[in-house]
Design a protein around this nucleic acid. Structure first.
Lengths: 207, 207
DNA sequence: TAGATTGTTAATCGATTAACAATC
DNA sequence: TAGATTGTTAATCGATTAACAATC
């Protein structure tokens, strides 16, 4: 073990920084500071400087950070300076909304395979790239054939664990799970959860 | 200040515990242990016991936790043992998928008002409860009239901050934001973010 | 009773913040 | 140069874990 591992929680903030930098660039700004970014994001400037300093010296004393330069650096660090093929399982309401979402393409992700277990949906064209829905039985073979390492689960909860297992066995290393259930995956496979109910229930305690 | 505040991060885990307990109940189980829950959720048993012990003594030594009892307790603690009216802004693809989602009702939330700024959408019936889409100009009045305190933002990023401001001024205290942008809200208003791109980018670093 | 598991304490571990020398 | 802001260190703060007495 040579390098000290970068804390997961620190990595987790980088996409938020990247998003903020995209907006600053969109506003036509050239330079920003850890203070300004912190104010926008509700984070201390010290934390932003510390997070960034793990990966290099991206700023200039007295000046701040060049927005486009830092933006590019973060894209490289997060490995979204390229396009990742994504396999989406679940072509219901939610799956359809995900496939139709235009926000992935500019951020490093392309949904290039969609699966469902409903015969009525197989063969349908879905999403902004008109991907043809395949039967979920073809999931493993397609993942392997195309070398896909990123998956999205948008199935009912009771199917999610099974889908995750097939994905992991076929070589997927990163799974975004919309199904409202905690899933177990082998070591080396990462999961992120999106559950609006959990989000809402985290706030009702304080009401 | 009498009571020591419960850490936010601890509150954030309770919805996940609640979700797990729902599943255990669905499986017909009566009793569980901190060990079993921890195994399922990928959390240490000590953490689960410590989290729960902040709110009371819900278990029995030597036995574990009664699933339905703990389930009910967590619903009370999280204040989802009642139904919260939710105002949804944005009736596009994403808003439609959210309104159509059947998973809110059983978990304490009812989308009872939907808003958009697109004239073509006003008057449409949306979601599983056939809510009529109103113009976003009516957002503040509707929130006040109905005493709504929970909102969901599903607008494009550039509209999200404005919508959040209107919501907060009208009395909303908890906002779930699907727009891919960090939003500033007054103290006393809580935000939760759902951004699939952030979720995916948190994992690509490790690929 | 014997076995199991809680609730809780103390110790460890890790993350955040404050502060400032370096320097643009 | 004077002013500003970084990168980094040390101190603080908070969260997690290990361990075990209590007890069902």
């Amino acid at each position: 073990m040579a390098k000290r591992a970068i804390p997961d929680i620190m990595i987790g903030r980088l996409p938020v920084y990247l998003r903020a930098l995209s907006f600053l660039a969109l506003e036509g700004r050239q330079i920003t500071s850890s203070q300004e970014m912190g104010d926008r994001l509700g984070i201390s400037s010290a934390q932003i400087r510390k997070d960034l300093s793990h990966f290099g010296e991206f700023g200039k004393q007295g000046t701040g950070y060049d927005i486009m330069f830092l933006h590019d650096k973060l894209r490289q660090i997060l490995k979204v300076d390229r396009m990742w093929d994504v396999a989406l399982v679940g072509a219901g309401n939610l799956g359809k909304a995900i496939a139709d979402y235009g926000g992935f393409a500019g951020k490093g992700f392309l949904i290039t395979a969609v699966f469902d277990n409903d015969a009525a949906k197989i063969g349908m064209k879905m999403g902004i790239h008109d991907v043809t829905v395949q039967h979920v039985d073809e999931l493993a073979d397609t993942i392997k054939a195309r070398g896909i390492v990123v998956g999205i689960i948008a199935t009912p909860a009771h199917d999610a664990q099974g889908v995750a297992r097939v994905m992991a066995e076929a070589g997927v290393k990163a799974i975004l799970n919309y199904a409202p259930i905690t899933i177990t995956v082998p070591i080396g496979v990462r999961m992120q959860y999106i559950d609006p109910v959990v989000g809402l229930q985290r706030m009702t305690y304080y009401l």
